[in-house]
Write a protein that binds this DNA or RNA. Structure first.
Ligand SMILES: [Mn+2]
Ligand SMILES: [Mn+2]
Ligand SMILES: [Zn+2]
Ligand SMILES: [Zn+2]
Lengths: 141, 141
DNA sequence: TCTAAAATTAGAATTATTCTAAATCTGTCA
DNA sequence: TGACAGATTTAGAATAATTCTAATTTTAGA
């Protein structure tokens, strides 16, 4: 079990320290898109010395290595999930839970998917803009 | 000119105070998806007494009345725009600018729209989940 | 085993946002 | 007009998420 997490980390060239293995295990077993704070609270009882800085650093490391995904859904709290498959998120304005949606592109506003009633949506793209693409060569930071 | 902003506010049942008119004007003339901080900095020279709390309160009021839109694009800073038409946002990871995209649904990852190269994207929906829909009547907060 | 680099830690610092309580403004009607 | 209640604005404190810092601990390799 834990061996699998260790292997996963090594595959991503991340040395599998105790803290990192535990954080990865937590994300695997808690598919509720937890915040960094929630990861910290969920683990600190078992790991007395765990520091918040380690949680933040580790989550960032995992995201940069592509091991996990980072998301923000209509709010200023970053959330994390072990599932890196491409999917859509739905946030309930009553209970606050975030659900995964695997149905493909439809017209979203004012319709219903998986029984969830959708009021509005955001689509955010990320990449390099045409202006920055055209001035490459000079400084490609 | 300013009269139009006043009328817009009154149409939305918002009393057109000096601060509110100026903030709306700023959003109209700065279509760069500014943050609350940027709105504040852009206005404080002309309005010495302007308070950040007023900027935050006013932006929230405008959003709740549907006069403007609020967005977060891969980051923990809320941004605002006067344009309430449904459109997509593209954030450049080099210059940080946020561009409007009016092209409809395509398959986004690894493709190009308007000359911007797209690496990844997020689709976020918002509404009421089926579980909350099914327990209505009891407490519809 | 020794050593340098990597990782972790506690807590301070920073930043975005909200809260609070006092001051100011506005519209109404005597 | 003038007083008053309610709405609005203000400055700064409070809160919350995240990052930074400097010291300590762990790890891996010679
Ligand atoms: Mn998900
Ligand atoms: Mn826009
Ligand atoms: Zn719900
Ligand atoms: Zn750019």
């Amino acid at each position: 079990m834990l061996q699998n997490y260790k292997k996963g980390l090594i595959n991503h060239k991340i040395s599998p320290t105790t803290q990192r293995v535990k954080i990865l295990e937590f994300l695997d077993k808690n598919r509720t898109h937890p915040t960094a704070e929630q990861v910290y609270l969920g683990l600190k009882d078992k790991m007395i010395s765990l520091s918040k800085a380690t949680v933040y650093n580790t989550l960032k490391l995992f995201v940069e290595s592509g091991l996990i995904h980072e998301l923000t859904v209509f709010e200023n709290e970053t959330r994390y999930e072990y599932n890196t498959e491409n999917h859509i998120h739905f946030k309930c304005i009553k209970c606050g839970n975030i659900f995964d949606i695997h149905e493909g592109n439809k017209i979203f506003a004012e319709s219903v998917i998986n029984g969830h009633k959708i009021f509005d949506y955001q689509i955010n793209l990320r990449g390099i803009c045409n202006s920055c693409l055209n001035k490459n060569g000079e400084n490609n930071a």
